[in-house]
Design a protein around this nucleic acid. Structure first.
Lengths: 174, 174
DNA sequence: CGAATATAATTATGATGTTAATTAATTTTC
DNA sequence: GAAAATTAATTAACATCATAATTATATTCG
């Protein structure tokens, strides 16, 4: 009764090797980067996500929630959960737009600015180390390629929109 | 009582512009890629994560859970939640290793292989479109850079380990 | 004007990621 | 050979993300 079941054929599948998967490569690389940055952030009591928000506000100034979502690449519900906490800690402030009571503008508060200016050197130093090890030119090149790819993908998504929508709505096979 | 509070100074912060943040660039690009692939997967009733598992098994053959975690970049608890579902749907199978009852080997089942072979062409076609639009050479170059960076970061993390551990354990300022 | 539609933001729900604790089994050490 | 330490995997607890539903406010148009 102990006959090994035959292993399913698995070579020469009609698809690229797993190691060449672009999404996987991006995920792995990002995780490797964050592994270096997270401890510093943690020591300041902010998460990666909170830092993203503070940084966007610091660089681009006060913004409405919708703009902030676009700038930080968060979905609106994520912001709805994160912002109240940052507000309580006085890192950010909010004020309703008086011409449209649905909207509110988020801005960096003194405490948030302090956190950023204190932590930025650490962050930049880490960046410098990465650049030194990896090569500054390569880093620039990588950022450029990522940006280009994002643009290309955006164009593609636009063109394929009908196809993608169709696939999205098709029911999973039962 | 409606005096506008002054906006905090925010230019010339001691840190790179948000747009040049490497983690952000990697996140945005990955999300842009997945936006193209997700609808197809969804139409087959599998999530991005489930696909990652099936694909790793298809390419590398049966594996123990720990190996699978490493190959797919999941943490063990995530697999513990995802695998039972795939097993119920007969996409994968599991069997305990008889020389070590703690371990179990996960393998692709006929149904899982069918799903992969059916979906792979769609996936490859999308990949081809991306390559055509973005440029095959640039794509290869990007993957190479990502891989190199991951290696560099791994080395750095090793060297900085004591520093990072110290930062990790430092309490957030009160 | 006022009903219908659109928009900004939040809340709800279910799946996933993360860390820590737990369980079960194996290996090490004296 | 049994107590101690280690390892594989799961479970628990909590934060986060994605999608959908809801709430409150604005806008459009008959």
């Amino acid at each position: 009764m102990s006959s090994k079941r035959p292993t399913l054929a698995r070579r020469s599948l009609p698809m690229r090797p797993f190691s060449e998967s672009l999404p996987m490569a991006l995920l792995r690389t990002r995780e490797a980067v964050m592994r270096l940055f997270r401890p510093g952030l943690r020591s300041r009591g902010v998460t990666e996500q909170q830092w993203r928000i503070l940084r966007a506000l610091a660089h681009q100034g006060p913004m409405e929630v919708t703009e902030l979502a676009e700038a930080t690449f968060f979905l609106a519900p994520s912001l709805s959960r994160i912002l109240p906490d940052l507000e309580q800690r006085r890192l950010i402030g909010r004020r309703v737009v008086d011409t449209d009571l649905r909207r509110s503008v988020v801005s960096l508060q003194a405490e948030g600015l302090r956190l950023i200016t204190e932590h930025a050197p650490y962050s930049e130093q880490m960046y410098a180390r990465i650049a030194k090890r990896f090569g500054t030119e390569k880093l620039v090149q990588l950022l450029q390629l990522l940006h280009d790819l994002e643009t290309s993908l955006g164009e593609l998504a636009g063109e394929l929109e009908p196809d993608l929508a169709r696939a999205r709505n098709r029911k999973p096979s039962p």
